[in-house]
Amino acid sequence: MHNLPLINIAALHVLIAQGKSVVLIDATIDKVNQRIDADGATPELIPDSVFMDIEEKFSDHSNPLPHTFVDAAKFEKEAQALGINRDSILVIYDRWGVYSSPRAWWMFRAMGHENTFVLQGGLPAWKEQHLPIVSKHLDTATLPHGNFIANPQPNFWKSKAEILKGLKDQENTIIDARSASRFAGTSQEPRAGLRSGHIPGAQNLPFDQVLSDIQYKDSSALKAIFDPLIGEKPVVFSCGSGISAAIIALAAYQLGYEDLAIYDGSWAEWGADENVPVERD
């Protein structure tokens, strides 16, 4: 079985041809101030895919922070509603290329589902090969209910309290996926009410630096990026709201680095709290 998080289109076709229990998942969300589809536009989708609604069904709306992870019971219920089973092989894509699909990958891995992969290049790579396109997702109301079981893996996430505890003794390597100007505190945050700057001691790796256009850079290029940043300490990835942190977390995982976690609250939480320390360049 393919054991790295990224899977290409050829490998996906092999799995399908072998009759494997593949579930194709579109995990697209809009970017900040940028929508994937204009009003009235017909969506372009990979055939036979279901839609994972990260913004609504897979985010905790009892929490004022954006995109925070739902509890295990809610996640299990929503995954089962997508027809996902315990033995399903999940191949996740997004319509940008690589943006929100790594977040969905991380969420399923955090719930213990190891056979979860991201389609390298997403929908744009699919279209480049002139493969079929449809305009509608599968109607999940017509699918058999899945038997997916959530098995939470707490090591995939870090809380604000855990970050604070680790700051004193520099227990973690913290890598921030926001732009260099947001990290330095020289540009304003896109979300109102947030201070500028970064978590003390954090390093900056803007998420687009691990990408080449619509897909991830190759392993040698990624290794040159990560080797100077990652040492022996556990690594925590942060960003604005937990989406782009997953992009660089997946890249590190692809290289074989271990002991990786995402700070789910990210800057949306840290930057709003006047009682936690902030550094600016």
Rank of each mutant, 00 (worst) to 15 (best):
S220H: 13
K168Y: 03
D176Q: 01
K233A: 09
A252C: 09
Q209A: 14
S179H: 11
F183G: 02
G193M: 08
G265T: 11
A252K: 01
A177T: 09
L229E: 13
E189M: 06
P206G: 12
S212R: 13
A246H: 06
Y263P: 03
K168V: 12
S187Y: 12
Y216F: 15
S241N: 11
A272H: 02
A245E: 04
Q203H: 07
R195E: 01
V210L: 08
K168G: 09
S212N: 13
V235W: 02
S219F: 14
F237G: 03
I262E: 03
G240H: 05
W267S: 03
P190N: 14
P234M: 11
A272K: 04
P206E: 12
D259I: 13
D227L: 13
I262H: 01
G240S: 11
A268Q: 04
A224V: 11
S179M: 10
S181K: 09
S187N: 13
Q254D: 12
A177M: 07
G201M: 12
F183S: 00
A184Y: 05
K217A: 05
K217F: 07
E269G: 05
K168P: 02
P206C: 14
V236R: 01
D259T: 15
Q254Y: 13
D218P: 06
Q188D: 14
A272L: 04
I247V: 15
D259G: 14
G242C: 10
I174K: 01
L255T: 06
G197W: 00
D273K: 02
A192D: 15
P234W: 06
Y263D: 00
G271N: 03
I262K: 06
I175L: 05
P228A: 10
S238Y: 00
P228R: 07
A261I: 09
D259N: 15
L229M: 08
K168R: 09
A252L: 04
Q209T: 12
E258I: 12
K233P: 03
E258D: 15
I243N: 01
G242S: 10
A177E: 03
K223S: 14
D176H: 01
R178Y: 03
A249Y: 06
L250K: 01
S220C: 15
G231I: 07
P206K: 13
G256I: 13
P228F: 09
D273A: 14
I247G: 02
A268P: 01
D176N: 03
D213E: 09
V210D: 02
T173P: 01
A245R: 06
W270L: 07
Q209M: 12
I247D: 09
L260H: 05
L205I: 13
D273W: 04
I247F: 08
A224Q: 14
E189Y: 02
Y257C: 05
T186M: 05
A180D: 09
A192H: 15
Q215H: 14
P200D: 04
A261N: 02
S241L: 03
K217Q: 12
S181L: 13
P228H: 09
S212D: 11
N172S: 11
G240R: 00
